[in-house]
Design a binder for these strands. Sequence first.
DNA 1: TCCGCTCATTGCGCTAGAGCAAAGACAACG
DNA 2: CGTTGTCTTTGCTCTAGCGCAATGAGCGGA
Lengths: 234, 234
Amino acid sequence: MGAIPASVEERVALLKRLNSPYHRDLDDDQLRMVAEPARLIEAQAGEFLYHQGEPAHYSYLLISGLIKIIHYHPSGRPIIVRFIKPGLAFRIAHFGVVSRYCASAQAATDVRVLRWDMHDAMRLLKEFPSIALNSIAVLQQMFVDLVETLNWFACGSAEERLFWAVRRLAEGLCEGDRAVLPITQGELATSTGLSLYTVNRILGSWEQRGILERHRHVLIVWPTKLASVCRYKI
Amino acid sequence: MGAIPASVEERVALLKRLNSPYHRDLDDDQLRMVAEPARLIEAQAGEFLYHQGEPAHYSYLLISGLIKIIHYHPSGRPIIVRFIKPGLAFRIAHFGVVSRYCASAQAATDVRVLRWDMHDAMRLLKEFPSIALNSIAVLQQMFVDLVETLNWFACGSAEERLFWAVRRLAEGLCEGDRAVLPITQGELATSTGLSLYTVNRILGSWEQRGILERHRHVLIVWPTKLASVCRYKI
DNA sequence: TCCGCTCATTGCGCTAGAGCAAAGACAACG
DNA sequence: CGTTGTCTTTGCTCTAGCGCAATGAGCGGA
């Protein structure tokens, strides 16, 4: 993980190109004020940007690549909470009471991120109410998403739980009619609370039905076909 | 569900007494501006304030009583997402893209709430950045809480899942050393994804160990004792 | 080129917990 | 004060999915 030299202009350009949900209401001058205290950072696949429980010193916005947000149970068992794609911030739990990272962030591919010191991030949030309002919208969407996931966990058979987990993770990662998930079957197993063996058998049956392809460390999913395994209208 | 006549002064007084996390940074004049467009509403135990999927016309703040937030799976199976106690807002998913209630709100006891028209709520949010910042803090805390819950669902045995569900629901409802949960064993079952019978048997064993008392529709829990059923340090 | 590691696959026995049935307990209501 | 409906309790059977074991497959490093 290291800093990449980048002028303010370059950072502004990155922000403009991103069109992130947080900064969409800002004009050029305002974007410049946002970009000014940021630093451009790169990290290699597998590196951790931060770890669950550490004091939250920074706020991040993903520029390119893919980030895995991982939450660890007290037993040490990890679940993949979500993927972050470019334009989304990952720094949940920065303000107020919660001053530690509530999960870990791992680079799933080589990544570039913009990083703000927490104090700067807080200041910007106060200075530009539109960022705060947009953050609320994003957070609410994430919250709703998580409630739904919880309900699927409570309801379903193994196949339904897996269906929902794959669908959810694939959702943000669609390109054309397919999504590429950088995830192993073992990770899917811990994320869903199923055993490795069960996940393997279910994915096998889905592959036979042409719903997805399994490769090493990677799952290629056709979300429209995936829907056929679910009995309910969503 | 009906309106209770209340002057602006009375509504301001209610807000001041509540000391809700959203409005703690406002002075008296500002509180008055917040209270002005609100209406005081009462509802009886069992009534629904709103239903999942309806257009979200109102924003609510609980004054007295207890609210259950219920999320329905496409199959119709409900889970109790959380209890709302006085001072907390329940109107998640009001702004931005999400314009429908993402869950239902049911009065668990007779309740009184303050209600804002969504347009007023949005206007106040823009007018008073401190409300937006505090909302972010509350939302983040709720999000973190939900991620933890999800992980316990993925990890655990039946007893661990139930432990976490009871602990979580009891957390906000502590009075002295005990918490009174207005919940049936059947509701706990659907909320945890366990069967009625399993919940009954586990709660039975906990009651024998003095961890809780079961009454009709009500669970009395001693949270400190509850911790003893969990193998992990939390 | 071989070794070693991590991830994937498959068969099989076993157990936690689902699900049915049937009875008991309590509250609300006429 | 019985009736009705909802919630709780318990015994019993059965199966979905766990978890072990053993093998295979691909990748990286020396």
